[in-house]
Amino acid sequence: MSLELPTTVPLQAYLALAAILFCTGVWGLINSRNAVRVLMSIELMLNAVNINLMAFSSYLDGQLIRGQVFAIFVITVAAAEAAVGLAILLSLYRNRETVDMERFNLLRW
C-alpha cells in the first residue's frame, strides 16, 4: 500500500516545495519591516527544513525514520525560540513603542 507512494509523488517534488518555502522565508527575513513578520519568516524556513527531513525520512530511511525524530526536535526548538522571540519583542516594545525594524537603530548596524 505505502509502496505506491514513491511511484506517485517523487522525492524531488517535496524537495522543490521545501526550496520554495525556504526561499520565501529568506525573502521575508530580509524585507519585512515588522519584527513579528520576521519571526514568521523564520518559522517558514524551519518548516521548509522539516519538509526536507520528513521527505528524506520517508523515501530513504523508511525503517529507521531518523528524520522524523530530527523533525520533532526541530519543532520543539522552534517553539522555544518563538516563545523567547516574542518575550524579547514584548520587552523591546515596552521600551521603544515600535516594531519597525528600520527604527531599531539605537545600536548602529
Binding site: 523564520i42 524556513m45 527544513v49 522571540g85
Partner: peptide, 20 residues
C-alpha cells in the same frame, strides 16, 4: 532589548540555514 532582538533574528536565521 534591541541587541537581544537582533541577535535572536540573525541567530535563528543562521540556525535555520544550518538545519537546511
Amino acid at each position: 532589548s534591541e541587541a537581544a532582538l537582533k541577535y535572536l533574528l540573525v541567530g535563528s536565521a543562521a540556525a535555520a540555514v544550518f538545519l537546511y
